[in-house]
């Protein structure tokens, strides 16, 4: 690797308190501090955020698309987990 190459970081922004941080993109930086400074310049030029998280891209472990079936299919046939599964008479209120 070139000695002038900076690693890739993923950037997450909290737009205001009460909301979660949300992924907005990535950037290159030599260290975490610089990643935060660069994220400020690149992703918050119009007050889009009040808090920034940066994570080295290589540290993120993602589920594989081909595991979609075994990972997520089991919840598809459990309709009884949803409130609409149950028949409650309209006369019963506040439920």
């Amino acid at each position: 690797m070139n000695k002038d190459h900076w690693k890739l970081w993923e950037v997450f922004l909290r737009s205001k308190n009460g909301l979660s941080h949300k992924h907005v993109g990535s950037l290159h930086a030599a260290d975490a501090e610089m990643a935060i400074q660069n994220a400020r310049d690149v992703y918050t030029r119009r007050s889009e955020g009040i808090s920034i998280w940066v994570v080295p891209s290589e540290s993120i472990k993602a589920s594989a698309p081909d595991e979609k079936e075994p990972l997520f299919a089991p919840s598809d046939d459990k309709v009884y987990r949803h409130p609409t599964f149950y028949d409650i008479p309209d006369d019963v209120e506040h439920m």
Binding site: K3, D4, H5, W6, A30, D31, M34
Partner: peptide
Amino acid sequence: AWVREAANAFA
């Protein structure tokens, strides 16, 4: 280039 190298060295 020297800025990128220096930032890496500092990090």
